[in-house]
């Protein structure tokens, strides 16, 4: 499922030409609309990699988790620490699971 951008929260990364989600998306799918809010321009091409969700500095992007994890429309929410990622998965029955990982990139 493609990322959904909360228009209230998205600030288009302020004065930037290319917001962080657009910079990080491996498929080059995120773009800024005319209202200076980001959106996913080709929902069907999204791989659910969640890079945009993780990088968004104001937490405006949500990815509905794909099938295996918690069935459609489960939520999978990352929270980025300095060198950890904490995942919260809420499945369709409202069951919450949480995982913490050390980030390998730092």
């Amino acid at each position: 499922m493609p990322p959904r951008v909360d228009r209230e929260k998205c600030d288009g990364c302020k004065a930037e030409e290319e917001p962080l989600c657009a910079q990080i998306c491996p498929g080059d799918l995120m773009v800024l609309g005319e209202n200076k809010k980001a959106y996913c321009r080709a929902a069907r091409d999204c791989w659910d990699c969640m890079s945009c969700t993780k990088v968004c500095p104001v937490g405006a992007i949500e990815t509905r988790a794909p099938y295996q994890l918690g069935y459609h429309v489960a939520k999978l929410i990352p929270m980025m620490g300095t060198n950890t990622i904490t995942w919260t998965c809420i499945d369709i029955n409202g069951k919450v699971e949480r995982f913490r990982y050390k980030n390998r990139t730092t």
Binding site: M79, M80, G81, T82, T84, T86, R100
Partner: peptide, 9 residues
């Protein structure tokens, strides 16, 4: 990120 760290620990 530090706040997130604290919560996740």
């Amino acid at each position: 990120a530090l706040v997130a760290d604290a919560l996740s620990f």
